[in-house]
Design a protein around this nucleic acid. Sequence first.
DNA 1: GTCTTGTATCGATGAGTGTCGATACAAGGG
DNA 2: CCCTTGTATCGACACTCATCGATACAAGAC
Lengths: 105, 105
Amino acid sequence: MTREPLGEADATDVARMFKALSDPVRLRLLSLIASHEGGEACVCDLIGPFDVSQPTISHHLKVLREAGLVGSERRGTWVYYWVQPVALNRLSALLQAPVATRVGA
Amino acid sequence: MTREPLGEADATDVARMFKALSDPVRLRLLSLIASHEGGEACVCDLIGPFDVSQPTISHHLKVLREAGLVGSERRGTWVYYWVQPVALNRLSALLQAPVATRVGA
DNA sequence: GTCTTGTATCGATGAGTGTCGATACAAGGG
DNA sequence: CCCTTGTATCGACACTCATCGATACAAGAC
């Protein structure tokens, strides 16, 4: 990003992912999933830590999934979610700024 | 983030920055500024590339500034903007995911 | 001073978003 | 079968946001 300007298409694509990260509940969900043992977490593990209702958690998980930031799978009664490292690393790389961009900064 | 869950306060703080990045126009503005020679750009350089009005560009620059992602300064007639590398790097580091989080992923 | 150019703010409006309760769907146990 | 538990969808509501035109402010030229 600091090398050459983003094109319109890329910007729209990346903006959709950042929008998925622009909510505190979703950020905490993502970090709960990422830091959970085995790298994945059941939805039942993700409802307790929040003050919002179960449908709201389900909605936020859907947003993260449709943004490509997490994957999910039903196994028996429970549904498990895991992070998609490739997507996160893409955003991470995009934000890496040069050490000193501006003269005197 | 992949090490331990984000606290509520941190999540709210970081979410505000990601929200500033969640718009295609703002992403392109940021990359235009970052990739401009000297690491800074005059507002007059930032209006032409877009199809939106000048007040809208001004609004988006304000959002980026209030999120701490860019700095600005008036020099004579023109106002210059530059990126804040520390802020971008903080977000970048936060998104760095382990190479293989899930077994078999 | 007045005029012109660059930038920011204001007020309005249409679209989008987070949240909820109610409800539907999925799967296993009795 | 019915019942229970886990998860997703639906419909509604309050709120936020991106955008605009109009206007105000800043600074230099004349």
